[in-house]
């Protein structure tokens, strides 16, 4: 109060007060900025700790590869040759000269579309079947032996049969993705449902949730960590299967691109394609893992 009294009386002090008030925030800004740069520095250090080791390892491997494959008569190209041969493919992934003469983007997106379709079907059917098997003892007794046998069949062994059934490459490839990725989803979902603590079931019983509410409010969240384990294995398997399946069915797709490159002895293109396949497989895995992390937030840590 005593401070504001003179400010009201004379203009001079009134003008002096705001400038004082201005000075104050400037002073407080200083200590605020210092820790911020510190946190940036710490973040940079943490990033460096993560990034530097793999960069060194990759650089080393490239050097070794270069040294080994540089000799005359080497069957595989060194990294420098790979880069020179595939420069066009790397820098122009979007060209389309009709037929199968397309940029890598189109091949990869064709493969990803097949995976997206087959995997989505597998996720829906797998979670439904897994819930059934996890919830019902009779369904488990009836279906589990069947699942255990079917899941050991290699993906490509299904391809001739599905070609015979669908008489077309596209649905056959999607079916192979589906049948490959569904088993881990079914089995993990079933384990998750079976492991729902009796306490949660008791809570649901006392509150009198109906079966649908029990499914959405208790079962799905309680089993979600297991489901995502299955979904993650599934996406990995489906990416494995698509490359092999596309080699056989032909058309547009990264698998056929690799096979075609082999037939035309473009070894560098194969290496580039493998690099992309690896990166995309990694991204798909991280994507499902990240989704799982968001969805199961709070469920895992109990």
């Amino acid at each position: 109060m005593s401070m504001s009294m003179p400010a009201m009386k004379t203009e001079a002090t009134a003008a002096a007060l705001p400038s004082n008030a201005h000075a104050a925030p400037v002073v407080t800004m200083m200590p605020k900025r210092a820790p911020r740069t510190e946190t940036y520095a710490r973040m940079a250090r943490e990033a460096a700790v993560r990034v530097v080791p793999p960069v060194i390892v990759i650089a080393l491997l490239l050097v070794i590869w270069e040294l080994i494959c540089r000799r005359a008569g080497s069957t595989l190209p060194p990294p420098s040759r790979v880069f020179k041969d595939t420069k066009e493919l790397i820098f122009d992934p979007f060209f389309d000269r009709g037929g199968i003469d397309k940029g890598l983007f189109w091949h990869l997106s064709a493969s990803l579309q097949r995976v997206a379709l087959g995997y989505s079907l597998a996720a829906v059917a797998g979670i439904a079947l897994g819930t059934l098997v996890g919830q019902s003892v009779w369904a488990m007794r009836g279906l589990d032996p069947l699942f255990q046998v079917l899941r050991t069949i290699p993906p490509l062994a299904w391809l001739p049969l599905s070609l015979a059934a669908f008489r077309d490459g596209q649905p056959s490839a999607i079916f192979v993705i589906f049948i490959t990725s569904i088993w881990p989803i079914i089995i993990n979902t079933a384990v998750g449902i079976r492991n729902i603590p009796q306490d949660y079931r008791n809570v649901a019983a006392v509150v009198q949730l109906n079966p649908l509410e029990f499914f959405t409010k208790i079962m799905i969240p309680a089993a979600a960590p297991y489901m995502f384990t299955g979904l993650r294995i599934g996406i990995g398997l489906s990416w494995l299967a698509i490359v092999a399946a596309e080699m056989l069915i032909g058309g547009v797709g990264i698998g056929f691109f690799i096979w075609d490159a082999w037939n035309s002895s473009h070894i560098s293109e194969i290496i580039l394609a493998l690099f992309y396949v690896g990166i995309i497989g990694f991204v798909l895995d991280r994507l499902i893992a990240g989704l799982g992390k968001v969805v199961t937030r709070g469920t895992v840590a109990n």
């Binding site: 949660y200 008791n202 006392v206 199961t296 937030r297 709070g298 840590a301 109990n302």
Partner: peptide, 19 residues
Amino acid sequence: NSPGPDRAVVFQNHSLLPW
């Protein structure tokens, strides 16, 4: 003879839904 909210239970280990 079936569970219901007229006989609500406080469980020994709390049984809160963690999500």
